[in-house]
């Protein structure tokens, strides 16, 4: 089984649009949406949920005002500024709380209790392309990397059980914890970039991250016709650094039109030039 993750440094480069196009082309594959903070893949894949699992990682805490003796120990031990002091009363700011649980353990009168924190859910679903593991994370949750670990390992297990060829992962933007979890153990990273200076800047940071994790990297330039000089610059950069360059996809409104009908570009405009380019890119990926 081959694990392929579609990621990018900069956001909005076209990860999900291109992932869904690959889904239309791939055979005998399973998909995982690891952009848990703003997942969109389900909009196109239209999953029918078969099973769902609750994801709760760290439990948050609440201060019981009746029992609190205002000793301010919790306020002092918290390193995340998550305990708020309002007129000598103490409250937990839920969004800032990371669930380290230290305040609860330190409270001398046990006035702090854990509250059930259902951080999110993840699902295993059937789609017209194959099975999809996706999730819904409550807003403001951190440590979404744990959810990604769950989603990925679940998808991996199914892939191995059913002897599937590919696990195709729609990844998050950036180089933080979510990306690190996503690329952990994959065989190939497909970086989507655009033809702008800022995309190139972010691409370089992403490539550096992949290097530290020893992961094979390949690059696609999406919206490549916005600035041909920078497109060329990116191509040359890949060549010089020995990174597989997969292809250039020009700006195409069909992506957005297809999105409105919940279709990938391959389904919406199968005979368009863009679809042909993506088919060629997908063949290249299978050979890498």
């Amino acid at each position: 089984m081959k694990q392929i993750a579609i990621i990018s440094g900069k956001g909005g480069t076209g990860k999900t649009s291109i992932t869904s196009a690959f889904a239309s082309l791939a055979k005998n594959s399973i998909y995982a949406d690891c952009d848990v903070n703003a997942s969109d893949l389900h909009i196109i894949m239209r999953p029918k949920v078969k099973e769902s699992f609750v994801f709760s990682f760290n439990q948050k805490v609440k201060i019981n005002q009746q029992e609190c003796i205002k000793c301010s120990i919790c306020f002092n031990v918290c390193r995340f500024n998550a305990v708020d002091r309002i007129r000598n009363n103490f409250y937990v700011r839920e969004f800032s709380c990371t669930g380290c649980d230290l305040c609860r353990k330190a409270c001398p009168v046990m006035a702090i209790e854990k509250i059930d924190n259902k951080a999110g859910e993840y699902f295993i679903s059937d789609t017209r392309f194959g099975q999809l593991v996706h999730s819904r994370l409550n807003v403001g949750e951190d440590y979404s990397d744990r959810l990604i670990d769950d989603v990925k390992s679940y998808a991996c297990n199914i892939a191995e059980e059913k002897k599937l060829d590919n696990l195709i992962i729609d990844g998050p933007p950036g180089i933080g914890c979510t990306t690190i979890s996503t690329i952990n153990g994959i065989d190939l990273a497909v970086l989507i970039t655009n033809s702008s200076k800022s995309s190139l800047h972010d691409l370089k940071r992403s490539l550096e991250l992949l290097k530290t994790h020893n992961i094979k990297a390949s690059v696609i330039i999406n919206k490549s016709n916005f600035n041909c000089n920078i497109t060329k610059e990116i191509e040359e950069y890949c060549l010089e650094n020995g990174i597989s360059f997969l292809g250039k996809i020009p700006y195409d409104r069909n992506f957005t039109y297809g999105m409105l009908e919940q279709k990938s570009i391959i389904e919406y405009a199968p005979f368009s030039a863009t679809s042909d380019i993506i088919r060629k890119i997908w063949e290249k990926i299978l050979k890498l």
Partner: peptide, 14 residues
């Protein structure tokens, strides 16, 4: 800010 609804974004916004 960074994209997303993670705690780092809340930190920037609150």
């Amino acid at each position: 800010t960074a994209p997303g609804t993670s705690r780092a974004v809340v930190e920037a916004l609150y």
